[in-house]
Amino acid sequence: MSKSHPRAFASAFGHIGPALLSVGSLILAWELYAQFSGISPTTLPAPSRVLAQALQHRAALFENTLPTISATLLGFSCSLIAAFVFSVLIDFFKPLRRALFPVFIISQTLPLVAIAPLIVLWFGFGLTPKIMLVALVTFFPMLVALVQGYAATDDDIEALLASMGASRVRIFLLARLPSSLPYFFAGLRISITYAVVGAIFAEYAGAAKGLGIYILNAKNNFRPDLVLAAVLVSATLTLVLFGTTILIQRLAMPWERLGEKARP
């Protein structure tokens, strides 16, 4: 046990070390090119300038990040609740799947550039259209993840529960729902990144405040450094949310990482 800590640390570094290296060298190359090629900072600002501007405009950035965070989290929560409700309905009434999936699949083919301005047109500049757009892009991946997760339940476990006299609802709660957890979290990790992009897209199409509208204004003012500063913020936001889902997964599924350890 005591030995596994430094080893876990080393292996964690082994995982993220290469990523740090590749991202680091990319930024370094960009910095050198922007500094020494003579390119105008209004075309390609150096990373150091982006960072400096981000710090200088941190109050405005912060003010515009809060609405994006609430749109992302509210939209994603709605989407999770809806995906869960529909996944349960589909699990208990199989024909529903064939009735509903085509509708959901079509909803996924709608181009965001077309749908975002329309939703803003219909529902105004408030929070509602953002929530709807975030839900639209994240609902289906979450639904598919849950439905697949239920289906991945071990047949033997279901046969065992049936032999014990467990009802269909009981089998769902005791076996199908827990079996779907790995699929649920895999879906969560992917969807949370879509959610941030969806929120920014909705704001871009029209909003009073938010990273999306901030990016639009910066672009119109020929300030690529501020566009990139907002991108930096949104990337950080996505990474934090992504990391949070991994943390929640570890807490929710403590058994998942035990198999790797030595058995008695």
């Binding site: 071990d154 476990i157 065992l160 827990p178 599924m253 058994w255």
Partner: peptide
């Protein structure tokens, strides 16, 4: 046939 223990 398989132990069918619930991993969770």
């Amino acid at each position: 046939q398989h132990d069918a223990l619930m991993p969770w």
